[in-house]
């Protein structure tokens, strides 16, 4: 095949991937519902993308004695759908479902099981990192050390349970 055609195809493929990535995230932001979640952050450094704040949510660690669940055991890496309901200022987990169809009309967030042990389930929801300009991560960490500041995150959740961070609030 002509090398010029190949280079055009490769360039087109790269544009499609980049634009596709942006559009899929924009779609979530445009169509999703905004909820506020409670967090406890720390500050590492990502080798690839600079400073970021690690966010840990109240719903990152679920006590199976306190929320509804169909299953009694979850494998690491398994997908879960966690139902969210507002409780005061924040949204909290109320039930865990194995499939998207199991949830009835409510808002749910899609997560992945990290581990399950002794009726405690640890999960990730794809909203555990918040990128900040270089050097600012340390400042945020200093503010939050010793629970001196309250931190909450505005998250957008779309109809398929995919979540994206919209804003991080410190003492607001």
């Amino acid at each position: 095949m002509n090398k010029k055609i190949i280079i055009v195809i490769i360039g087109f493929l790269w544009v499609v991937i980049a634009v596709g990535m942006v559009l899929s995230k924009q779609q979530t932001l445009r169509t999703g519902k905004t909820v506020v979640l409670e967090t406890v952050p720390v500050d590492p450094r990502d080798f690839l993308r600079g400073d970021y704040v690690v966010l840990r949510y109240k719903l990152s660690s679920l006590d199976m004695n306190q929320i509804k669940s169909i299953k009694s055991y979850y494998r690491p890496g398994e997908s879960i759908y966690v139902e969210l309901k507002p409780k005061g200022k924040f949204w909290e987990a109320t039930a865990i479902y194995e499939k998207k169809g199991d949830t009835i009309n409510g808002l749910f967030i899609k997560g992945k099981v990290k581990y399950y042990y002794d009726k405690k389930l640890e999960a990730n929801y794809g909203i555990e990192s918040y990128f900040v300009p270089e050097g600012e991560g340390r400042d945020i960490e200093r503010k939050m050390r010793g629970n001196k500041s309250s931190v909450s995150v505005e998250v957008v959740v779309d109809s398929s349970g995919r979540a994206l961070i919209k804003r991080v609030y410190i003492d607001e």
């Binding site: 790269w14 991937i17 980049a18 990535m21 942006v22 995230k25 590492p44 990502d46 690839l48 993308r49 600079g50 970021y52 690690v54 990730n124 794809g126 909203i127 555990e128 990192s129 918040y130 990128f131 994206l164 961070i165």
Partner: peptide, 20 residues
């Protein structure tokens, strides 16, 4: 540069480090 572009999009949308 392509790697940089993808990393930049990931950074803008806060794709977590666990999904590197």
């Amino acid at each position: 540069f392509w790697g940089g572009t993808i990393a930049l999009i990931g950074q803008i949308y806060n794709i977590p480090a666990s999904e590197n």
